[in-house]
């Protein structure tokens, strides 16, 4: 698949990695060098991921889903995470010149660790295998629609708020 990268808005396509960030040449780098910078990013992602996953685990303990029930907790976790990343990416790109570890920590780590695709896929398999194929199909479609609507709402609302504050 080949396509150029058109720029309609300022935000990057990939929120997890910043390939446009210059990698300092060996010997001319900042203090500590690129290896240290990479280590800091990995640490930020790991700590953020632990916080996000712990929050998701906590939600599953607070609102447990019965084995053959609609997975509302994972559904809500994913929808909330999508709304937040939409708002976060607009803020961090257009408003807030944040520290370089904020995006790896919160976007890649916390939100990436909070939301989950594997549990979504396996829960659909479990529902289908347990004789609840229609519920599984409904869960499949509803999560996808809710997630895309949530990320769109997060981006749109935040852009409007930013424009309103600047007007």
């Amino acid at each position: 698949m080949e396509a150029q990268r058109p720029k309609a808005f300022g935000e990057p396509t990939d929120p997890d990695i910043d390939l446009s960030a210059p990698v300092p040449a060996p010997g001319t780098s900042r203090r500590g060098g690129p290896a240290r910078g990479q280590g800091q990013i990995l640490a930020a992602v790991a700590v953020g991921g632990a916080i996000g996953a712990a929050a998701r685990y906590g939600a599953s303990l607070l609102w447990p889903t019965p084995a053959d029930g609609f997975p509302w907790t994972t559904f809500a976790v994913n929808a909330v995470g999508c709304a937040v990343i939409g708002a976060f990416m607009v803020l961090i790109t257009d408003v807030w010149a944040a520290h370089r570890l904020v995006r790896p920590f919160f976007g890649t780590g916390v939100l990436g660790g909070f939301t989950t695709f594997s549990t979504y896929a396996v829960d659909i398999e479990r529902l289908a295998g347990g004789g609840h194929a229609r519920m599984g199909l409904a869960y499949l479609a509803l999560t996808l629609i809710a997630a895309l609507a949530a990320v769109w709402s997060g981006v749109w609302t935040t852009r409007r708020l930013v424009a309103w504050r600047r007007a």
């Binding site: 990268r5 058109p6 720029k7 309609a8 808005f9 935000e11 990057p12 396509t13 990939d14 929120p15 997890d16 991921g49 632990a50 996000g52 996953a53 998701r56 994913n78 995470g81 999508c82 937040v84 990343i85 939409g86 990416m89 976007g107 890649t108 939100l111 990436g112 660790g113 909070f114 939301t115 989950t116 695709f117 594997s118 549990t119 979504y120 999560t143 997630a147 895309l148 949530a150 990320v151 769109w152 981006v155």
Partner: peptide, 21 residues
């Protein structure tokens, strides 16, 4: 597996693709 996979990045990337034409 929960932290390896992500719905937030997936949905954000999908939205950005749509916005970029």
């Amino acid at each position: 597996c929960g932290a390896l996979t992500t719905y937030s990045t997936f949905s954000y990337e999908t939205l950005r693709l749509a916005e970029e034409g």
